[in-house]
Design a protein around this nucleic acid. Structure first.
Ligand SMILES: [Mn+2]
Ligand SMILES: [Mn+2]
Ligand SMILES: [Zn+2]
Ligand SMILES: [Zn+2]
Lengths: 137, 137
DNA sequence: CGTATGTTTGCAACATTGTTGCAGAATAAA
DNA sequence: TTTATTCTGCAACAATGTTGCAAACATACG
């Protein structure tokens, strides 16, 4: 179940199974949605230092185990990168619920960016839709 | 020309014409694209304090004279809200040039957000396209 | 004019998010 | 066991942004 999934995620990326890494992954997997660093740290069993958590997040980001979502206002949320459909996950949009403030990864819809002015070439995008979520309507 | 435009922007919002406000608007109007607070402050004539600039930006944000664009990585850019087409300006996308790092406001295309999962209702969005700009291709 | 009131500014202090240097603890390799 | 590598905690720092306070400035009113 959970322990399994953590081991798989770390194994796939050849990352050693350190206590902090295991805990951060557990918290993110259990939560299901994106969390900020303070969110994550407050849920860790074992009381890790802020620095250690940031270093763990950094290695996960470098290895694409997680990705970050920057909200307006500066808050940064971290979420597991589910690799079931590898390419689909690299480009995907996010949803912010104005009600419960949860952030969801939207993997389903292949959204097509708008037409750009003459001379502009798109390379990627970053879309955050806000509104009311599943759970709050 | 420029002095005129500054006066009009401040007058429309019933804001007094203080030295710092005039300077910040001048810099933003002259630049044409979005700028960060350090960018702005380094171009001000008169050497204003960091705090004063932030307070000026805050009042401009509150009055919708400017709007902010949060880039991935945390940098926040500030740009004039052109009110020629009032409603069109409130919802618009932005373009980040991977080459010259300039940020452009995209007012033209009415982009349609992707279909959301059952139970999700969209209220707005925040789209940042990246690629190569006009000037760098 | 002088005085009272309100606004702008600068400075110091603080909060938050994130990174880096360094040394000790824990793991893994030899 | 000894050695080498990796994690972790602590302190320090940087960047962005906010707040409290007092001096400077502008406005209004007598
Ligand atoms: Mn995501
Ligand atoms: Mn804009
Ligand atoms: Zn919700
Ligand atoms: Zn460019």
């Amino acid at each position: 179940m959970l322990q399994e999934e953590v081991s798989i995620l770390l194994g796939q990326k050849n990352m050693s199974k350190t206590p902090c890494r295991v805990e951060v992954l557990r918290v993110l997997l259990e939560s299901g949605s994106a969390l900020s660093e303070p969110d994550i740290r407050s849920r860790l069993n074992g009381g890790f230092d802020r620095t250690t958590v940031y270093r763990t997040l950094r290695s996960f980001l470098d290895q694409d185990v997680i990705h970050s979502i920057s909200l307006e206002g500066g808050t940064v949320m971290y979420a597991i990168t589910h690799q079931k459909e590898k390419h689909a996950e690299l480009f995907h949009s996010h949803f912010f619920c104005d009600d419960c403030s949860k952030v969801y990864c939207l993997t389903k819809p292949e959204f097509e960016p708008p037409v750009l002015p003459e001379g502009f070439k798109a390379n990627g995008y970053d879309l955050l839709i806000n509104g009311t979520c599943n759970n709050c309507s």
